[in-house]
Design a protein around this nucleic acid. Sequence first.
DNA 1: ACCTGAACACCGTTCAAGT
DNA 2: ACCTGAACACCGTTCAAGT
Lengths: 237, 237
Amino acid sequence: MSVVGVRREPVSRRERPAKPALSRRGIVDTAVRIMRAEGLEKVTMRRLAQELDTGPASLYVYVANTAELHAAVLDALLGEVDLTGREGGKGGKDWRGQLRAVMTSYTLVLFEHPQLARSALVARPSGENYLRLVERILDLLSRSGAGREQVAWGVDKLLQDATATAAEQATREHDPHSEGDWSVAVGALHAVDETTHPAISAHIPHLVSGTAEDRMRWSFDVLVNGITGTPVPGQAD
Amino acid sequence: MSVVGVRREPVSRRERPAKPALSRRGIVDTAVRIMRAEGLEKVTMRRLAQELDTGPASLYVYVANTAELHAAVLDALLGEVDLTGREGGKGGKDWRGQLRAVMTSYTLVLFEHPQLARSALVARPSGENYLRLVERILDLLSRSGAGREQVAWGVDKLLQDATATAAEQATREHDPHSEGDWSVAVGALHAVDETTHPAISAHIPHLVSGTAEDRMRWSFDVLVNGITGTPVPGQAD
DNA sequence: ACCTGAACACCGTTCAAGT
DNA sequence: ACCTGAACACCGTTCAAGT
């Protein structure tokens, strides 16, 4: 193999434990560690460089820019998604139950790392863990018997829905600033004039009702029912 | 009224056209102008202050922070959404056609101002134009005859879907950096091994097929069909 | 080829002090 | 009450120069 490990350089700088060579792997691992400890907003080129005992310019040899770095962090995290479809609920499952379990696992992983969900929506990921996830969802959804195109487009919708939900819900929980945002929005709904906004008035309790779990479950069913029951335009597959 | 307009101060600073007093209105209007001309990323406190001939600290009298400012800009933009439901397609429409037209108008407005869609997903808006939009969508969707709770939750899904689609599609078009992102993702799909990722291989053409319009139309139908056909958990409304 | 110091061109937000 | 200068504590990215 390589000569890594054979120390040729004298221990010059203080007693530091020998600064390891830079590598994309090491950079991403460090980024993940910072994110887990302090959140994605602390995963900056400068902070990362500091952690790796170098200057920010050095990172650009391995990472194109901050967005690419965040994408790499996201893919690393997607390794935690349970693809088996066994999690949650009771015992033996059909494709729908398994798919629900996979989507739930994906959503929960993103829930723990809110800011990452935003990145996922904007810069479509293409890492190996993402591909594994897409493969699994495609496989499960195709067992519904729906047309190939419906299945392909449907996977997109399922992932988009889960990602957007995580990005939304996330803010309400973690971001110190926007804690009030949610209550402001709810307040705006309640403050609405019944004569100018009759529909809002009529639906008021339901607009804010339901637990996150209930809404997620319903969303999943809405999408799966819609996907399997709605042919793509101009095709009777 | 007030004494605004009665000039008491001598024209000291050069020949500037008399710096107008700061106001939330003026700040938001200027923010909208900058965004239209140069994009949301240029709408910063510092840039705005410069444009208004003051220091950034002055803005904090009228705006809590950057997120709140962006939310105000978003609501101003939502004033452009066509709520009539007459746009597009041919003549007289039922609720479904009208709702489709409203959602399309909403999506197109966000398409023109990509970065704003991202804000909308994260900080739920609560401005007057947003409330008008919600009112209209609720009204149209309730004509489907679906239960009140389905309708209320459904409006959320419709808005989330359109917003997420705009946020995604947006990046591909405007952001100079992520132009390549899309092709990278498509490339990753094509480069996939048929034996390790059989489902992706089998669905390859469909995963990237369809125009934005076709996908939007299909998404709308998927959601409306799903929403109206899927009762909320534990309720037979 | 890889790494770096230093610079360029920015950020949001706070706060004491002024009017 | 409103406004401000100045400061604090940061950013991403580039580039010429070094090894």
